[in-house]
Design a protein around this nucleic acid. Structure first.
Length: 208
DNA sequence: CGCACGATGCTCT
DNA sequence: GAGCATCGTGCGC
């Protein structure tokens, strides 16, 4: 399977892209091995949206968000966590899609090691896409968890390209799902905007 | 199960 | 000096 091309990211505006990314597979080919998961939850951040890091001027922190569609924006939050975004607009505009949850598909052992899960954490959820598969729900069901599980970091991925980098996205495996739209999680500004999207009924979303 | 809260460091005011 | 696109623990039910 071939990774999504630059055209895919330029084809849609940010709100549509956030929905088109659902069902696609995020892959990281790292020195430790490959990890991958199906994107099941996203949020859109627009340039005229007060919750968006690019709402004000370009700074060192948010600079990657002003890059071209198909590049990666990683930032630190709450002093200890990191989140990953897919830049979704033309150079200089400053829009992106936050990846909030993955359903693991590959490299689960490596994910568990990176997440340092405790022995008692045995919560298993059934895959909605592969009836034979079941995974621990605690690996990628949150934006900072999936960054940790996938081994994504600012020095390696911030500003990188999904077209030729070690982090990339494969096309959606199916269109056979419904999308739920809600307000975004964890923000105070722009809290009423319906910019969060997730796959209905999927067991690996961060919350319903 | 759900809710409340503390950790922790960088950015911008 | 405040605020932040979060997470894990600890408590009560």
């Amino acid at each position: 399977m071939q990774r999504l091309s630059i055209d895919f990211y330029h084809q849609y505006d940010t709100l549509i892209l956030a929905q088109k990314l659902l069902g696609c597979t995020l892959v990281h080919d790292s020195p430790e091995g490959r990890t991958a998961g199906i994107i099941v939850e996203t949020e859109a951040y627009l340039t005229d949206d007060p919750a968006c890091h690019a709402y004000r001027k370009k700074t060192n922190r948010n600079a990657a968000m002003f890059g071209r569609a198909g590049s990666v924006y990683v930032y630190q939050i709450y002093g200890m966590h990191y989140c990953v975004n897919i830049v979704s607009a033309e150079e200089g505009r400053g829009e992106a899609v936050l990846i909030r949850a993955l359903e693991p598909t590959e490299g689960v052992n490596l994910m568990e090691a990176r997440r340092k899960l405790k022995m008692g954490d045995k919560i298993i959820r059934q895959s909605a896409f592969d009836p034979a598969a079941a995974y621990r729900s605690n690996l990628c069901n949150g934006p900072a968890k999936l960054v940790q599980a996938m081994g994504i970091s600012i020095p390696k991925q911030n500003g990188s390209s999904l077209i030729d980098g070690s982090l990339y996205i494969l096309p959606s495996i199916t269109n056979d799902f419904e999308i739920v739209t809600t307000t975004r999680i964890g923000i105070t500004q722009g809290a009423d905007l319906p910019y969060r999207f997730y796959i209905k009924g999927n067991a690996f979303v961060s919350r319903k």
